Amino acid sequence: MRRALLTVLAFGAVAAPAQGAVRLEKVGDFEAPVYVTAPPGDTARVFVVEQGGTIRIVGRQAPFLDISSQVTSGGEQGLLSMAFAPDYATSGLFYVYFTDADGDQQVVEFRGSGDAADPRTARQVLLMRDSESNHNGGQLQFGPDGRLYIGTGDGGGAGDARNRAQNRRSLLGKLLRMDPTRGGRPEIYAYGLRNPWRFSFDRQTGDLTIGDVGQGEWEEINFVRRGRGKGANFGWRPFEGNARFAPGESAKGHVRPVITQSHEAGNCSITGGYVIRDPALSWRGRYVFGDYCRGVIQTARLGGVKKVRVTHHRALRVESLSSFGEDASGRVYAASLNGPVYRFVDR
């Protein structure tokens, strides 16, 4: 997963009352949850991805899928996310991203039906060789164009020593795009990313937001309008945040982050989230995100403003904040690597 998942800081109450109208409602406890999602149109079920290699449905005892025997888990490795095909209701197709027994990254297709998936339906869609155990990226999302987007880290090692993020012949340090049913090598949609652990598309506008984990000083959030991400260079490794990282190296015309946060403030690993479109939540229209070490829930309005103002909801904290997620109704969730999964609700 990320460098920061090796570090655990203890905060006070995880689900303290919110500042304002929003609170965290616990929906269950899991084994190292790293992602939350649901099939399109399925408002009855919520799926939780566990790092060790299982996918569970909230409220069900038996796992939806168990591939733990195929997964290398621990630190930044493991079963990192899943994505349901837009036509899942008829095709049953979904995709998972995991670290295999050799330490390489795989994207694999499965078929599911009802409350169970058949592991025998596995079909490898993408294999990425990886000599390091960190900076694995791990996010899968179907975009507004119906294609599968894949966030990949720069392959690990301090400072992207192999300069993969700026190398457009490498699949690492990128946002990839592909039609998984046809297979073949994916296209590089955007590049210059260090470890895009979590990215998302606004379900209303299609705008793209990326939380890119920093090196040692700065964490960053990148934002582009729908369709503007194609060919974009997000600046790593010449830049970390807005700061020069590699003197003499160029990232001409790169997209600058809309939010940067310093490690001096207690941040260590950004956890990107979602623009909230839940009509029942007073935060709708705001982007929610946080940091693995600080655990403080933060929101901001992106796009249409020259300077993004971040609100720190200090009474809302999630220890070891591993991920956010969104269900078919647009409700948003926060997961703690320690086990709990919460849903954002109005008080």
Rank of each mutant, 00 (worst) to 15 (best):
R331F: 05
S262C: 09
R284H: 11
D115C: 03
L316P: 01
G253P: 08
N222G: 00
M82Y: 04
P144H: 01
F324Q: 01
E249A: 12
G273H: 00
G159A: 14
A21G: 10
A335H: 01
V49T: 11
R162V: 14
L281P: 06
P186C: 07
A328R: 05
G74P: 07
P119F: 01
G143A: 04
E319L: 10
R277L: 05
G248S: 07
G216Q: 13
I221A: 03
R111K: 14
V288Q: 03
L6P: 02
L302F: 04
L126C: 11
P279D: 07
P144Q: 01
C293G: 08
V305C: 07
G216E: 15
D66I: 07
N267Q: 11
P33D: 02
A4Q: 11
R347L: 14
N134K: 06
G253D: 11
D179L: 10
R111N: 11
S113V: 12
L79A: 05
D202Y: 07
G159W: 12
T121F: 02
K230N: 12
P279M: 04
Q215L: 07
Q106K: 13
G227C: 05
L126K: 00
R45S: 12
F11V: 13
R168D: 15
N222I: 05
P144Y: 00
G138C: 03
A161M: 06
P40D: 10
G216A: 14
G211D: 06
C293S: 04
R203A: 13
Q215E: 15
I276W: 01
R301Y: 10
V34A: 09
I67C: 07
I210S: 05
S200W: 05
R56P: 14
P63K: 01
D29T: 08
F201M: 04
V107F: 00
F324V: 09
M1V: 11
R225I: 08
F11A: 13
A243D: 15
A335R: 01
H135S: 10
G253V: 03
G114M: 10
D118E: 10
M178F: 08
G184C: 10
F84N: 03
N163R: 15
S131D: 15
D278Q: 00
F94A: 06
H312D: 15
R164V: 12
